[in-house]
């Protein structure tokens, strides 16, 4: 019954639809190419020799292939070697900045997700006077643009003597963000009350219920939040720029900015810059490759609820 009618419909208006699909695919492929090309160009340039780039600016393959840019960026080459390939004489050590980024993003993610989930549990599953009022107060903070609190926070971190320390970089986000609390509360509200009640009958307290039931049951949303938090803190530039310029705590984004400002104005070390840029982006690209489905699925419900 269905087959002939479908065939009939297809016969009635054949080529227009199919051409539409071809055109649609063409646009889609074009957008994907425009998305991927800069990543390829970053890779291609990072394996080039800066001094030779001018002679093959439009070559699709690395110009005068060398690993020199990576050696410069990772602090492995001597000044003479660096200058010979168009680098600057200043030394940089992106391994160290990578370590700093890992320390900052990991601490921030673990602290923020854990403490926010504790608070979310109290807002979602416990009954106490003033609960809704406190929650509303937390929510108002979602509407404040970051810069409004950033300047006074800088003053506070300075007064605490925490400028250029890991603690100073992570502290403002370590204990909560309004979004994390809000996001987790939504999920905790939906946890089956029967599970909780059964545990209580077995004599479990709230702490046990939180660790043994709520956290394991909400593993999915908590992991999603943790991934998003990790990416956000890894990519953050403004706050670490204010409080963590010192080499000992400098994260990758800040290091890239400084590397760019140090490179000679007239003849920038493009290969070095692109090697550093790719090095800074690579951990997120790998993370994405491993967890793409979860990250892609998370976009729908974190952005628009």
């Amino acid at each position: 019954m269905a087959a002939p009618s479908a065939a009939l419909r297809r016969r009635r208006r054949p080529p227009s639809i199919r051409w539409g699909r071809v055109a649609g695919w063409a646009v889609l492929v074009l957008i994907m190419a425009a998305t991927l090309f800069p990543f390829y160009w970053m890779l291609r340039t990072s394996f080039s020799n800066t001094r030779s780039l001018a002679f093959g600016a439009a070559d699709l393959l690395p110009v005068d292939f060398t690993l020199g840019a990576y050696r410069r960026v990772l602090g492995l080459s001597t000044t003479a070697e660096a200058v010979a390939e168009g680098g600057s004489s200043g030394t940089v050590d992106f391994w160290r900045y990578l370590r700093n980024s890992v320390v900052v993003a990991t601490t921030l993610t673990v602290g923020q997700v854990f403490f926010s989930s504790m608070a979310a549990y109290a807002f979602a599953r416990l009954r106490w006077p003033g609960r809704d009022a406190v929650f509303m107060l937390f929510l108002t903070a979602l509407m404040v643009p970051p810069i409004f609190t950033t300047l006074p926070n800088f003053v506070m971190i300075k007064e605490l003597g925490l400028l250029n320390t890991y603690l100073g970089i992570v502290l403002p986000g370590l204990l909560m963000t309004p979004f994390a609390v809000f996001f987790l509360r939504q999920f905790f509200l939906g946890v089956n009350a029967g599970l909780e009640e059964a545990a209580r009958i077995d004599g479990a307290g709230h702490v046990r219920i939180f660790f043994r039931i709520i956290l394991p049951v909400s593993k999915g949303p908590i992991t999603t939040l943790a991934i998003l938090t990790y990416i956000t803190s890894w990519n953050d530039y403004f706050w670490p720029l204010l409080v963590g310029k010192d080499e000992n705590v400098r994260v990758l984004t800040v290091a890239l900015g400084i590397f760019r400002s140090q490179t000679p104005q007239g003849s920038p070390d493009w290969a070095g810059l692109m090697a550093a840029t790719l090095f800074a982006a690579l951990p997120m690209i790998i993370l994405f490759a491993l967890l793409s489905r979860r990250i892609i699925d998370s976009i729908g419900y974190t952005g628009v609820k």
């Binding site: 998305t35 990543f39 890894w234 990519n235 530039y237 984004t253 997120m284 690209i285 994405f288």
Partner: peptide, 8 residues
């Protein structure tokens, strides 16, 4: 992909 790498 571009959204996952830093603005910088």
């Amino acid at each position: 992909l571009p959204f996952l790498v830093a603005n910088v």
